[in-house]
């Protein structure tokens, strides 16, 4: 359990947020040309690092807006939170 900084609302308790997995997954431009293997990768395969990770969060019980978080899955330390469309910050502390 931790404190997350919503880019719009500021620091709030994690229980106000919902999480939706890995961030920065580019949707394929033309899914119809993908092989089964590539399509399976897009749908089901995610990075699951022990350490720094980029993920999508939604301020579900607040402004209900989406944003991205850079977090350490081994220590729960949050390095940065940033708005969608912004470039991902470097790994580790910014």
């Amino acid at each position: 359990m931790f404190i997350i900084e919503c880019p719009w609302c500021g620091k709030r308790d994690q229980s106000e947020f919902s999480t939706h997995g890995e961030a920065h997954i580019a949707r394929p431009e033309d899914p119809s040309v993908l092989s089964d293997e590539q399509w399976g990768d897009v749908l089901f395969f995610r990075h699951n690092p022990k350490g720094q990770h980029y993920e999508r969060w939604n301020h579900a019980h607040g402004c209900r807006r989406w944003f991205n978080v850079s977090r350490n899955t081994a220590s729960s330390e949050i390095y940065a939170s940033y708005k969608p469309g912004e470039a991902r910050p470097g790994a580790g502390k910014s």
């Binding site: 229980s15 997995g21 022990k50 990770h53």
Partner: peptide, 13 residues
């Protein structure tokens, strides 16, 4: 818990 983690602890909520 709903977020990925390797910490072997979870949220009180």
């Amino acid at each position: 818990d709903t977020y990925t983690s390797y910490t072997q602890t979870g949220g009180f909520d």
